[in-house]
Design a protein around this nucleic acid. Structure first.
Lengths: 143, 143
DNA sequence: GTTTGTGCAAATATTTTGCACTTGA
DNA sequence: TCAAGTGCAAAATATTTGCACAAAC
């Protein structure tokens, strides 16, 4: 049997893959492949960086993981809670991520696309900011 | 005198910089630094790739140019028509880009950030779709 | 047992930087 | 003049790939 809660057809269950998925599930927000790799090593799990990259790529292909690009081009990965469409509010400082929804935005995007004669509309929305904890360190505070 | 239509305070007008801006203005959509560099060389303009990168960066800083990240992490640049914040509707097929505005989205993003205690809110919105011309070729229709 | 996964090291690719030289204002 | 811009080559970074070995099914 396959007791793994993350069984994905076509991807074999291995110690390393499970570890990557677990590290992802522990993460509060988006993480780079390198951060995940570091974290795993810190946890005493020996996994090659290559494997982390390959696993993440496989998971993205399997639509189990979301990938976005940071401003500097680095790939950020995150386990998708649900299959349904949502967006992210990401802290620039600590990377903490909040999933947000915006039905109005979805509709707006679709409407804009249609109005210009586009079809099969898709969109990407990411919100970046500095969370109160991180802002506090720089001298400014939120309420 | 300074006949350049692209005079930006703090950035000196040079043959290379003008060429980069012109190449950008001829482009219909987003271009990578390397594409621009190639195009310039094809036009017989000798400009170093380094200079292209530095110029684009300067223009982004001066908010004359928009930068987004392609799916593979490459930076894509585009001359901004206006100075103010806007988003893009990009065709998957031909890359044709339409600048769109969404005051409601801006506000929504800021509001979401603030509600979660984030500050210095910024956001990225890109809409993708297939324009009517490209859709016609594939014969598919949504809905 | 066979196929898929793993890990190291090396390869790629993009973007940045050091430094000496040129050029715009 | 002289600070800012330029270009080459080398560096830095992120990600991918070849290949030999190990593990999963």
């Amino acid at each position: 049997m396959t007791p793994s809660p993350f069984a994905v057809p076509g991807i074999r269950t291995t110690r390393q893959r499970s570890a990557v998925v677990e590290a992802l599930s522990h993460a509060d927000g988006f993480r780079t492949a390198q951060q995940l790799h570091e974290r795993l090593r810190a946890d005493g799990v020996t996994v090659g960086l290559t494997t982390v990259y390959r696993t993440l790529q496989a998971l993205v292909d399997a639509e189990q993981v979301d990938m976005v690009r940071a401003d500097d081009g680095e790939a950020l990965y995150r386990l998708c809670a649900g299959q349904h469409h949502h967006h992210h509010l990401v802290c620039r400082g600590c990377g903490r991520t909040v999933e947000v929804e915006g039905p109005a935005v979805e509709e707006w995007a679709r409407e804009v696309g249609v109005r210009h004669g586009y079809r099969d509309i898709d969109h990407v929305v990411e919100i970046f900011g500095t969370c109160s904890t991180c802002a506090g360190n720089s001298g400014q505070e939120g309420s």
